[in-house]
Write a protein that binds this DNA or RNA. Structure first.
Lengths: 121, 121
DNA sequence: CTGGATCCAGTTCGATACTG
DNA sequence: CAGTATCGAACTGGATCCAG
């Protein structure tokens, strides 16, 4: 298994990875992954954790993440149904990079806000 | 300056960081940041580097990145005009996390493709 | 509770044309 | 070359309703 994190990864141009990228570089996808973290959450719990996500967006994105093997979906055959979502190994690996991105956001919040003020003037 | 990368960053819910996040967690924004890297590129060079980006998307996103202080825009008053884009400090910091995400994509490409086949069946 | 389907308002995006 | 403006097609996403 190649470890790309050490050196600069290859360009995304014309790469098959480029086809994956849009699924991953998406606001809702990343927020859902971040919300799940190490936990196992029910559909409604994820919805409560991810501020502002609509029912539709949540199902769509959870389905997409499941399709890509980032999230495991476990259905309990009860009534009412209970469906639980958990990050898979690769999903958790991606989460660490999302964490870094969230960390970056918090760290540079001030810089960004100042830059915006300057720009908007 | 708090360093969030060590521990898990705070939740994005109801945070001012959450307002920044959509700008950053965007396909074109991340691809542009990745394309710039440590280099200084002209508008047309960025366009050539970022596969499939339209003129309009590129201007919009470069403007947005500039507004957020992630990219510096330098105009040379020549004719024809020459405009160069470079990542700022925070921009370069973000790029390292984007690198990690690209690395993750390459590393887990196989897993994702297999998961997709399974799911689509 | 979970989730699929439908409708449609609003947005996005690409193409095109035009400016300095 | 870089950038803006405009237009229409395509898509997105939210609301709603129904089903298991």
């Amino acid at each position: 298994m190649r470890v790309w994190c050490r050196r600069r990864p290859p360009a995304l141009r014309r790469s098959p990875a480029r086809e994956i990228f849009p699924d991953v570089a998406d606001k809702w996808a990343l927020l859902i992954i971040e919300a799940l973290g190490e936990r196992t959450l029910r559909f409604s719990e994820v919805r409560d954790e991810v501020e502002g996500v609509s029912h539709k967006m949540l199902t769509q994105n959870l389905r997409m993440l499941e399709r890509n093997g980032l999230v495991e979906r476990k259905v309990h055959p009860t009534v009412p149904p209970r469906v639980e979502y958990t990050l898979t190994g690769p999903g958790r690996a991606l989460r660490t990079t999302v964490d870094a991105m969230c960390g970056w956001t918090h760290e540079h919040l001030g810089h960004i806000e100042r830059a915006r003020e300057r720009f908007d003037a």
